[in-house]
Nucleic acid binder design. Structure first.
Lengths: 356, 356
DNA sequence: GAAAATTTGATGTACGTAAATCAAAAAATA
DNA sequence: TATTTTTTGATTTACGTACATCAAATTTTC
């Protein structure tokens, strides 16, 4: 039988009330007594029954999720997953609020983080922007003992508790490796399409991709990075121009969003199927393009897994418990048209999405 | 606030005791009263607080895991993951026992299933063998209202509640697609190495692989399947013979276990790096071979995820609750040397493994 | 319509923890 | 030593559900 608070009291030779004071860090216990109790806890291997404790406290976990606004399909899919988690709130004892802030706007994000801190939630999950002010805002939360998990995009140098997202350098390397092998004997330069070099995950993917291409497939020249700002219309124009400027393009790695524009440009080119295309995030658009052969591979991060993982980790941190490391590792999924999961499982918004 | 049993009593105009009788299907309630209570439950949207119920009942979930014995690295890794789950038992209220039975032996498996039934656990997870007697044994468990989850290898035609494993046809198709693309312009036949055609997952992988190769890469002849019985020594001998018989082999798809033998044969051949090799399951051996370039890609199923998923599903079934579909989908991981996870995350036995 | 059988209600205890109150004991201070 | 302050103990209620007991009410049976 698992030891209870009564067992601690017996083992330490104190009363239940004292054990409670120690366990819940209440005042009025002499240091010697406190140590006696703590040693008893250690000795008999007591672990608090979180379910019983939560029942007694009628505890709920108020969490704040801070996401970028805008019509980026992946982010809207992420939000849909948070809403799915909200629909499970009664079972999971969570009270989740969603805050959206303009993308690529550090000031807005800092404001949102500080507002979140004001309501002192049990935890905050945030899609981070890589800037010193944001780091400072996150560290303010941590200084107030509020657990913070970064979601999708990490915040190096901050004191965040955990990152729920993929290893983007590895993702870029994987894309490079697939690109090189898929091109096989074919020659021709390779283009890279990014959203913005101001975003950390995009930079990391690019670094990984470049490293592998230079290392293992030096025969392919790398064209200058096209920055499409994750905007489908801009992407379509820039890619079309790139096709005109370098008709011999052999491959395209799209490491950001706005793939709807890329797909449109490929369709207009017509002979697009000879170009090897690798893109990120499985959305309705990339899925369709994969199925008809316009895209050769899609690297994906499972937004549902990321959200559920963030919640599990925030709960564990709030309770001071350990997490199962392997369970919280977010995989880089590689989708070919042969291993596409059923529709409901991709990072889709439930309603009609406009862009990707 | 979430409604409680008291709310049901008030809403139905009956006493708490009657509500309890209905909720826990105890005798002594007239049909009209029972219906009145059930309608109230429906109306106010009551959902039992499983945590409180488990506390009151001091409930534990006794589960039985039935796994094949033998020195197959993947299966031993699976067992290690079950042991990891056992180490979390006190937190998860589980009492898990592991039963190992000789591989590929339907009679032994049937005996194990019937023994499991005799102790009437809260659920059974089993690595299935595809045979009518096993189907019957599983259905006997289900007839006794014991939830059953098949693990890794499914049991079509049975009444099992859930399958915790990958879509093996998709895995085979993915392997075919990667093989065809990785081979690029190169010519030459492709060999397939399997454990045994008596096992369902192996058959399905082969079917998927053949389908894609014939459909999309008809230029490559497919050599007859080599059945290595998942035995490293036999595999090494058969592969070496195959190299001698067809020196022009361009690719090998290893869809079963025993990869240690394949790797040894490739090493002896020396010029192995020109052969495209795709294998299943990330073990210490396949990981090393991937890193040095002897293997080009490894398709993997995460044993830890499979075990945790099986436990979650068995609990949910035991409690009559729904599961989060997407969370229980087991992915086909594709590993290149560029996206290998850290060591601790692969399907490894903690101690020294002998085969794969 | 009375007796027997069934159904329903009222009540209490339990699960493991949290949290509060008040009295008793111990320690610190004068 | 007397007084004040701090520490500790004893006890109770609560969280939401399970489960048992016994009495009261209702229905069924003869």
């Amino acid at each position: 039988m698992r030891p209870t608070v009564h067992d601690i009291a017996a083992a330490a030779g104190v009363s239940l009330a004292t054990v409670d004071r120690v366990l819940n860090q209440r005042a009025g216990v002499r240091t010697v007594t406190r140590e006696k109790v703590e040693q008893a806890i250690e000795r008999i291997g007591y672990v608090r029954d979180v379910a019983a404790a939560n029942l007694a406290k009628s505890r709920v976990y108020p969490f704040v999720f801070i996401l970028p606004s805008g019509d980026n399909s992946f982010m809207r899919g992420l939000e849909a997953q948070v809403r799915a988690a909200i629909s499970r709130s009664t079972f999971e004892r969570t009270v989740i609020s969603i805050v959206t802030v303009p993308a690529f706007n550090p000031e807005a994000l800092v404001a949102a983080l500080d507002e979140a801190r004001a309501v002192s939630p049990a935890g905050v999950a945030v899609v981070a922007i890589d800037s010193p002010e944001v780091i400072a805002a996150v560290d303010r939360l941590r200084a107030g003992r509020i657990p913070v998990v970064t979601l999708v995009s990490d915040l190096a140098g901050s004191k965040r508790d955990h990152f729920a997202g993929v290893d983007n350098i590895a993702a870029g390397r994987t894309a490079g490796s697939l690109m090189g092998r898929f091109l096989g004997g074919r020659s021709g330069p390779v283009a890279v399409l990014a959203g913005s070099m101001l975003v950390r995950d995009h930079r990391e993917r690019l670094d990984g991709f470049h490293a592998v291409m230079k290392e293992s497939f030096p025969g392919h020249a790398l064209l200058p990075v096209i920055e499409g700002q994750d905007d489908p219309a801009l992407v379509e124009r820039l890619v079309t121009e790139a096709f005109a400027a370098s008709p011999e393009i052999a491959g395209i790695y799209s490491l950001g969003a706005g793939n709807r524009g890329l797909i449109a440009a490929l369709q207009r080119k017509g002979d697009g199927s000879t170009i090897c295309v690798i893109a990120h995030e499985l959305t309705r658009h990339t899925r369709a393009a994969l199925n008809v052969g316009l895209i050769d591979a899609v690297l994906n991060q499972d937004a549902g897994h990321e959200v559920r993982s963030a919640i599990r980790v925030l709960k564990a941190k709030a309770d001071g418990l350990a997490v199962i490391g392997a369970q919280e590792r977010i995989r880089i999924d590689i989708f070919l048209k042969d291993n596409l999961p059923f529709d409901q499982d991709s990072n889709q918004e439930p309603e009609q999405g406009r862009a990707d």
